[in-house]
Simulated assay, not measured.
Amino acid sequence: MITKTLKNSSIRTGRSFDLGKMNLSQLWIAYLTYPTILLYFALVACSFTVMAYTWTTLAPVAVSIGAVMLVYPLVWYAIHRFILHGRFLYRMKWSASLWKRIHFDHHQDPHLLDVLFGSPLNTIPTIAIVTIPIGYAIGGMPAAAAAFGAGLTITCIYEFFHCIQHLNYKPRMSWIQRMKQRHVLHHFHNENGNYGITSFVADRLFRSYYRDARGCPRSPTVFNLGYDVKEAQQYPWVMEETGAPPRDRPDGANPTRNAA
C-alpha cells in the first residue's frame, strides 16, 4: 500500500503529490513519509529527550508548553498576514525567491504538497526564534527544549490539517468541515482574510474573519497575491525564477512548470 501510493503517478502533478487527486489514506502515507515531516519528528524526539534529561520540576516545562500553545496562533497569524501576504519581499531581488517559495507558489497551485509544506530552512529557525526564548525565560534549558518541541509538534499538526484543507475529501467532523471551508475561501475567494489554519481566533480578534463568500467581496488577486503581470514587469525576479508570467488562477494540471 505504501509503495503503491508513493509510486502512483495518477496522484502527482510533476514531482509533487497533488492533494486534489488524493484520498485520506493516501494523504496519511504521503504525510508520514515526507522528509520535512520526518525531520520535524526527529527534532521533536531530540527536544523532549533534552527536556527529560535536564528537567527537575514539572511546572516550568508545563507552563512553557502552554505559553507556546497560546502564542503560536498569534505568531502564525502575524507572519501569514504581514509577511507572507506582504508585497515587500518580491520587490527586493535578494528576497524574491524566498517569497516565491514560502507562499506565492502555494497560492498559485494550492493543492501541491511540495509547496504546501514550508522549507525546513525557513520554518525551523523561525520556530526556534519564537519558542526557545519563551521557554528559556520561564525555566531555563529544560523549558526551552520543551517549548521548541511543542512548537515543532504544533507545526506538524498544523501541516496535517492544512493538507486536509486542500485534500479531495470531505471531513466527517463538522468542526473540521468549518475549518476547511474557511481556509478554502482564503485560497479561492479572498486572500485578505481567514489567515488561520486550525484556529481563527486571531482573525476574529483583528477583524479579518469572514464566514462565507457573502461576507467578503471576491478578490482579483486571490491567486497571485498582487504579483500580477504588471508587477512582474517592474519586479521580474519571481517571474524569472518561475519561468512564466504569474497566473490569476491555479494551474495544477501543468506538469511541465511544476516539474521544473
Rank of each mutant, 00 (worst) to 15 (best):
T3R: 04
T3F: 01
R12K: 15
G14D: 03
K21I: 08
Q26S: 01
W28H: 04
W28E: 00
A30W: 00
A30E: 01
Y31L: 07
P35K: 05
T36V: 12
L39D: 03
F41D: 08
A45N: 07
C46Y: 04
T49E: 12
A52W: 09
T56L: 09
A59P: 04
V61A: 00
S64H: 11
G66A: 12
G66M: 09
G66C: 10
V68K: 02
L70M: 14
Y72V: 01
L74C: 12
L74E: 04
I83S: 07
F88K: 13
R91T: 11
M92Q: 14
W94H: 14
S95A: 15
A96W: 05
H103M: 12
H107F: 07
G118H: 05
N122G: 13
T123E: 12
I124Q: 11
I124W: 07
P125G: 15
P125E: 13
T126N: 09
T126V: 13
T126D: 03
I127C: 04
T131K: 05
P133A: 14
P133V: 12
Y136E: 05
G139L: 03
A143W: 01
A147P: 04
F148P: 01
F148W: 06
G151R: 01
G151W: 00
T153P: 01
I157G: 02
Y158Q: 06
E159S: 09
C163Y: 01
Q165M: 15
Y169G: 00
R178V: 10
M179V: 06
H186F: 08
N190A: 14
N190P: 10
G193R: 02
I197R: 01
F200H: 05
V201E: 07
R204Y: 10
F206L: 12
F206R: 04
S208T: 15
R211K: 14
A213R: 15
R214C: 14
G215E: 12
P220I: 10
T221I: 10
T221F: 10
V222C: 02
G226H: 10
Y227R: 05
Y227D: 03
W237C: 04
V238S: 01
R249F: 15
R249C: 13
G252M: 06
T256P: 01
R257P: 00
